[in-house]
C-alpha cells in the first residue's frame, strides 16, 4: 500500500509538469508578440516593455521556464497585470464563495444522484428508469446558464422565494448564505447529478447480475437489504471515480454559474481576467484547478482499497 501510494504520488508529478509546460508554452508559442497581445492595441512601447519585464519575456525561453518553475515551487503564481496584486492574494480573496458553492454542490449532487441511480437500476426497464435516464440526458444537454436563468425566472422572479443574484458569505450567517446559495447550487448540480446518477445506475446493474446477489436473494435476504448492503456498497468505487473525474466539469460549471448569479468567486475572477487579458491570473487559476483535479483523483485512487477490501496493492 505504501509503495503504491508513493508510486501514485510520483505519477502525479509528470501530469502537473505537463500542465505547467502547456500553460507556459501557450503564452510563448502564440503567434505574435505576447506582450502586445496582452497589452491590447492601445499600448505604448513603455507599457509593452513593462509587461515584457514583468513576465520575464525578455530572457531566453529555457531561462524563463526555469525561473517560472522556481517561483511556482515557492508558491509564487506571479502578479496580476491589472491590479498589480500577487495572484495568490487574488485567489485567496475569491476562494471562499467558490469553495463553499463547490462543496455544497458536491454533497447535494450525491444526495440526489445516488438515490436516483439506485431507483433507476432497481426499477430497471420500467418507466421510472426511462424517466431518470431522460433527466440525465437533459442534464448533460441543457447548458448550465440556461438552467440558471430558468431557475432565476421561476424561483426568484415569479415565486420570489430567493434573491435573483448575489452572494453572502457563510461567515455572515447561515440564513442569508443558504438563501443565496440554493439556486446556484442546484444550477451547478444539474450536470453533476446526471453524471453520478448514470454511473450509479450502470454499476448497480452490473453488480446486481453477480452471483453473490443471487445467493443473497436465494437465502431470503430482503430486497432492500440486497440492494443497499450487498449491491450498492460494491458500487462505491466506480461512483467515487466519476465524482473525481467529474470535478473538471464542476470547475467549468462554477465559472458559468458564478457569472449567472454574480458571485464574486474564482469563476468571476477568471472571466474578469479574460476580459482584461490578465494572463498571469488565468495561468494561476489553470494551475490551481488542475492541481486540485489531480489531487482529488489521487485521493480517489488511494481510497479504492479502503472502500473495497478486495483491492490490494
Amino acid at each position: 500500500m505504501l509503495a503504491y501510494t508513493l508510486r501514485r504520488i510520483l505519477a502525479a508529478i509528470p501530469v502537473m509538469g505537463v500542465v505547467a509546460l502547456f500553460v507556459f508554452l501557450l503564452l510563448r508559442l502564440t503567434p505574435g508578440d505576447p506582450a502586445a497581445i496582452i497589452a491590447g492595441d492601445t499600448a505604448t512601447p513603455a507599457q509593452l516593455e513593462a509587461i515584457r519585464t514583468s513576465l520575464g519575456l525578455d530572457k531566453p525561453i529555457p531561462v524563463q521556464f526555469a525561473t517560472w518553475i522556481g517561483q511556482l515551487a515557492q508558491g509564487d503564481l506571479g502578479t496580476s497585470l491589472i491590479s498589480k496584486t500577487p495572484v495568490t492574494t487574488l485567489i485567496g480573496q475569491r476562494l471562499g464563495p467558490t469553495l463553499s458553492l463547490a462543496l455544497i454542490t458536491m454533497v447535494l449532487s450525491i444526495l440526489i444522484a445516488v438515490p436516483m441511480g439506485v431507483l433507476a437500476a432497481w426499477k430497471h426497464g420500467t418507466l421510472i428508469d426511462s424517466l431518470v435516464m431522460a433527466l440525465c440526458v437533459l442534464g448533460f444537454s441543457v447548458p448550465v446558464f440556461v438552467i440558471g436563468y430558468l431557475l432565476i425566472q421561476v424561483f426568484a422572479i415569479q415565486l420570489r422565494w430567493f434573491p435573483v443574484q448575489g452572494f453572502s458569505s457563510i461567515v455572515n450567517g447561515l440564513g442569508p448564505f443558504s438563501q443565496r446559495a440554493t439556486l446556484p447550487a442546484f444550477t451547478l448540480a444539474s450536470i453533476y447529478v446526471a453524471l453520478i446518477a448514470r454511473m450509479t445506475r450502470a454499476s448497480l446493474l452490473d453488480v446486481l447480475g453477480e452471483d453473490y446477489i443471487r445467493t443473497a436473494r436465494a437465502k431470503g435476504v430482503a430486497e432492500r437489504k440486497v440492494l443497499f448492503r450487498h449491491a450498492l456498497r460494491n458500487c462505491a468505487v466506480p461512483i467515487l471515480t466519476v465524482i473525481g473525474t467529474g470535478f473538471a466539469l464542476l470547475i467549468s460549471g462554477v465559472v458559468v454559474t458564478e457569472s449567472v448569479f454574480n458571485i464574486p468567486g474564482l469563476g468571476r475572477l477568471i472571466v474578469d481576467a479574460v476580459l482584461a487579458r490578465d494572463y498571469p491570473v488565468i495561468q494561476g487559476l489553470i494551475l490551481l484547478t488542475s492541481g486540485i483535479y489531480v489531487l482529488i483523483n489521487l485521493l480517489v485512487d488511494l481510497s479504492y482499497s479502503l472502500l473495497d477490501p478486495r483491492i490490494r496493492y
Partner: peptide, 18 residues
C-alpha cells in the same frame, strides 16, 4: 493526462484570450 487535468472551459478561455 496533463491536458485532461485542465478543465476544458478554462483551457479554451486561455487559448481564446491569447
Amino acid at each position: 493526462d496533463g491536458l485532461m487535468a485542465i478543465p476544458s472551459v478554462l483551457l479554451a478561455i486561455a487559448v481564446v484570450s491569447l
